[in-house]
């Protein structure tokens, strides 16, 4: 992870007009955070805080009411091949085979490539997500997990600068989700892929993220705090919970989701809260002295 931010979210706000169209409801506002090169950032929040809207704005599919998203210091004006999206549903074209779905993306990225070159390129990513043998299958012939693998391969195959993921595993059963998370960890780690993921799964966030952005409940959701993952990399599901920092991390996040996400307004009233620099927390085991070392840390 370097200090060079790829994504800069600055004062982002999204409001929707109320049914009588006289006023508007702010879903979230005054959102500031960065995603750095090679970093994996997760955004956690309850449903209704505008997580998907936020991701769509980052992807360029939706426009903010206020504020900007900068990618490489340039204003996001629309979707780009630099930002691949893995959608909540797999969003595969059901009339195309797994290979054709990936090729649709690859040929959009490199229209000049020959059929053979594209084929070899697609095959590389099919193999990467362990779908070798399923190339000619249609999405309806694949299991839920395999479909999302095709979705991941499609996103990775265009070699994007940033991968944006909208709860990619939420529709899968726990076992499938686990194995896909493991694979995503190793792929992202090996490729140093800058990623931004939306989730409501705490364990998923702890496993995958370098930093976790906590969003309070909507309407008028804010970034409550940014949690740095204190668990060392590489992380794996099998031994994650053995680390002394695991439970402090987990409890911190649960405490947030259960209590603080809804009482945040009182919390900022009593503390010095600067939306441009949301407090940073580094939950650690009690015997680790650096627990509250960061200057902007809020005491738990």
């Amino acid at each position: 992870m370097t200090d060079k931010p790829i994504i800069q979210v600055q004062g982002l706000e999204k409001s929707f007009p109320t049914p009588n169209e006289k006023s508007s409801t702010q879903v979230f506002g005054d959102i500031w955070f960065d995603v750095h090169e090679g970093e994996f950032v997760c955004l956690i929040g309850h449903s209704g805080c505008g997580k998907t809207t936020m991701l769509n704005i980052l992807a360029g599919l939706d426009k903010p009411t206020n504020g900007v998203v900068l990618v490489d210091r340039k204003d996001v004006r629309g979707p780009s091949l630099d930002r691949a999206v893995i959608f909540q549903g797999h969003a595969l074209m059901p009339w195309m085979t797994a290979m054709a779905n990936i090729d649709f993306a690859v040929s959009s990225r490199w229209p000049e490539k020959s059929r053979e070159e594209r084929r070899a390129h697609c095959q590389e990513f099919i193999d990467l997500v362990h779908l070798t043998g399923a190339e000619t299958k249609k999405p309806s012939q694949l299991s839920g997990g395999m479909r999302q693998r095709v979705g991941i391969a499609r996103a990775l195959a265009i070699e994007p600068r940033i991968m944006l993921m909208d709860e990619p595993f939420s529709a899968l059963d726990a076992l499938t989700r686990g194995s896909l998370q493991d694979e995503l960890v190793s792929i992202v780690h090996a490729r140093k892929q800058t990623s931004f993921m939306i989730t409501h799964d705490i364990d998923e966030a702890i496993l995958l993220a370098d930093r976790i952005v906590l969003m309070t409940n909507g309407p008028e959701a804010r970034v409550c705090e940014i949690v740095e993952n204190t668990l060392p990399k590489p992380r794996s599901r099998t031994n994650l919970h053995m680390h002394p920092n695991y439970y402090p991390m987990r409890n911190h996040l649960i405490e947030f989701l259960v209590n603080r996400s809804k009482n945040f307004k009182e919390e900022i009233a009593s503390a010095s809260y600067d939306p441009k620099k949301p407090p940073v927390a580094r939950p650690m085991a009690a015997d680790t002295t650096a627990a509250l070392a960061a200057p902007q840390t809020i005491a738990m």
Partner: peptide, 21 residues
């Protein structure tokens, strides 16, 4: 489905190609 159109948009697919593919 909105999703499929969004996929095409994020891949910067031209309008003609989106229409036919």
């Amino acid at each position: 489905r909105r999703e499929w159109l969004n996929v095409a948009r994020t891949l910067e697919v031209s309008s003609w190609r989106t229409a036919f593919r």
